[in-house]
């Protein structure tokens, strides 16, 4: 179970790292913005139908692109976790059982919080050192 917990923790951290690195939340915010813009354009009263038709065409392409990019980024970011959960039991590591175990979940939570704290502290000390070494 310890090996499964470690694999699961690694997959979870990799997923979180990819979500942060690829800006998945930013892509979903852009998707929401595109949807709101489309609604605003369609609700505009003073615009002509010809203009709305052209704008709707462009906005449809834009919205489809943003949706596919955001969905693809999310699917790719969740890939480590999906691989760990699907391949783990086949390779003899009970990752699905570990995911349902409350003790393993608690251990992963504590490990994640500790790692986030260490990363934050390291980033802060690195920024302070860079500020001291900079010529300005």
């Amino acid at each position: 179970m310890i090996a499964a917990a470690l694999v699961l923790a690694g997959a979870l951290l990799a997923t979180l790292h990819l979500v942060r690195r690829w800006g998945v939340l930013r892509r979903f915010a852009a998707l929401g913005l595109a949807g709101r813009r489309a609604l605003r354009v369609l609700a505009r009263r003073r615009a002509s139908d010809c203009w709305k038709e052209r704008a709707a065409r462009l906005l449809a392409i834009h919205l489809m692109g943003r949706s596919l990019v955001a969905g693809g980024a999310l699917a790719l970011a969740a890939l480590p976790l999906a691989l760990a959960l699907s391949l783990g039991p086949q390779l003899g590591v009970p990752t699905t059982a570990a995911l349902l175990d409350p003790l393993v979940r608690l251990a992963i939570l504590v490990a994640g919080i500790c790692l986030a704290f260490v990363r934050f502290a390291l980033a802060r000390s690195g920024a302070g050192r860079r500020a001291r070494l900079s010529p300005a």
């Binding site: 369609l42 065409r57 449809a60 596919l68």
Partner: peptide
């Protein structure tokens, strides 16, 4: 939520395309 918003985005884009075309 991510999967739901992606699906909503795709459906919205299809509806918008129907509206335009």
């Amino acid at each position: 939520l991510g999967a739901a918003s992606t699906a909503l985005g795709v459906v919205g884009a299809i509806l918008l395309g129907l509206l335009a075309f």
